[in-house]
Amino acid sequence: MDVLVIDDEQKIRKIFSSLMQQQGFSVRAADSVAAAYDMMLDDPADLVLLDINMPEVDGIFFYDIATTFCKKSKFIVTSVYALADQRQMVPGADAYYDKSDSLAELVRKVRHLMPSSEQPVRG
């Protein structure tokens, strides 16, 4: 399974990428919606970790577009907003994660979305 991390904050991208690699996924990272858009057109990721608040084009817009042509991809909204607010801003995503929660929580949410056939290899 491959994961796409979209976040404008470089340090967050690094943390999420390391975490996903540890979980045994292949990881790509994009620092903007524009970059992410190209990557998704190229090769849709199975799982997208999507930040909301980004300069230029925000995650909400990306979600609306990407879900129309990547029907198989799962989306986890990862933002510092409270979960209820996230749900309101990006309705219909597969999961929501508050970036100030523990990474274990994110792992739990990712695993929950994974098809049972594809259990991760622990790193």
Partner: peptide, 8 residues
């Protein structure tokens, strides 16, 4: 970021 770095 701090929390993530530390947990990782």
């Amino acid at each position: 970021i701090i929390r993530g770095e530390m947990e990782l």
